[in-house]
Design a protein around this nucleic acid. Structure first.
Lengths: 233, 233
DNA sequence: TAATGCATTTCACTTATTGAAACGCTCTTT
DNA sequence: AAAGAGCGTTTCAATAAGTGAAATGCATTA
């Protein structure tokens, strides 16, 4: 028991990942991909199959309904909030500005589901549950799918005067799950700085659902670690 | 090797299910839930943790980003289509009418992503990729979240004259992922029959993402197996 | 026909999983 | 304060359980 981890389970989860990554995969391919003997791969895939995590048809193995189900459950707001927690903290830590997470709400609106107040004495403030329109706000535009090529949206003095909002989408597959944003008093940030911040926010947004691949190396790299946004006015 | 399944993996997946079901769970609770000794549960949860399937914080274990990621991937249209395939087949087999699967599209519309033509010589026909408005159609109403208490929507002679559409939502957690529907020439179905059909469609829609719990018994029960919709005019 | 590749089964080997027990810890109870 | 209960964690010997090479049968391809 070298590393307090279960080899069999690791292998099974690796296979599960392979199946989900490729969409459909043959036994031989899956075995190659995971560097397993065919017999082992077969046994593990059968276990995954009997539990509904994968299913088998004539073309090979595909993701099963159980994983869709669990993934959807895990995607509840609460989970998304805590998944995004670290990213929000890093944004506040790196910029001193307030950071937010929004999701689409019922009608054509979005709501704040997580907030981290900035550390500046003059800062933007909002609260969990607050509704925002999908137009005229950076977070709203992102939720509305007005995804710019650069990966983030900057709105200066939009619906809220005197503040500049920078937002980027949290993608889940090819669908927009949420919007991550930082809101800054406009006097404190130049257009150029806003773009730099945009890159940072976009990187953090991407990181939220990006598997940092297995055991993150001690002191693993996160977006923003290398380059903290300057904040001189 | 009694049943060609690996106990360790089964247990790990069971724990994963527990974590996702409860949202957050302590080691002791998880162990009890899965009828495992604490030490075994701990080891398996650590494996799940090191692979990103669960994560641990002060409150206990929670679903990790990896499962959200895989679930989202699995939820791509293609997967949903093939997950729904069996349900569509059963609907056509049981009723002889055309059955469809729709998802929300870009603007306020839905699209057909899977069709199964009925077997009657006079039948409704549509095609994959066709767009429907969210109002005036049964599938559209379902997608729009106009979820009736009974679990299905019946639209007689709506946008399409002379046909009766019966639709039910495919829920994924608490969000509407798709609409499952059967469309029947109106002359062939009474209002009462439409309601019966509604129950059937709703049951099938529910079944699509309902884990049929582990190894389905040979000839496992599916909605509609017991009670096929009569179709006398 | 021979050859290649795949899915599947078998089986001896032994590795890797297992769970009881013990420990330190934090609360709660007495 | 001391005792008790519950939790997370580690240890360790027993052995149950997973492993992979090899063999089989079946398609496809050359």
């Amino acid at each position: 028991m070298a590393d307090a981890s279960t080899r069999t389970v690791e292998r099974a989860l690796l296979l599960l990942g392979t199946v989900c990554d490729r969409g459909v995969v043959s036994l031989a391919d899956a075995a190659r991909d995971a560097t397993l003997s065919a017999s082992t791969a077969l046994r593990l895939l059968r276990t995954l199959e009997s539990t509904g995590f994968v299913r088998k048809d004539d073309d090979g193995y595909r993701p099963g309904m159980r994983i869709v189900q669990l993934g959807a459950q895990a995607l509840s707001h609460e989970s998304l909030v805590s998944l995004a927690g670290a990213a929000l903290d890093r944004l506040v830590g790196g910029t001193g500005e307030s950071a937010y997470l929004n999701v689409p709400a019922d009608d054509g609106h979005g709501i704040y589901i997580a907030v981290r107040e900035g550390t500046h004495s003059v800062r933007h403030t909002s609260w969990v549950g607050r509704r925002i329109p999908l137009t005229g706000t950076a977070a709203g535009k992102v939720l509305a799918g007005e995804a710019p090529s650069c990966g983030y949206v900057v709105v200066r003095n939009g619906i809220e005067p005197d503040v500049t909002a920078v937002a980027a989408p949290v993608m889940i597959g090819d669908r927009i799950a949420a919007s991550l944003s930082v809101v800054v008093p406009s006097y404190r940030i130049s257009e150029q700085q806003a773009d730099t911040l945009g890159e940072l926010v976009a990187a953090e947004a991407r990181s939220i659902l990006n598997t940092s691949t297995a055991t993150p190396a001690p002191g693993g790299t996160h977006p923003g670690d290398t380059e903290i946004q300057g904040e001189s006015a």
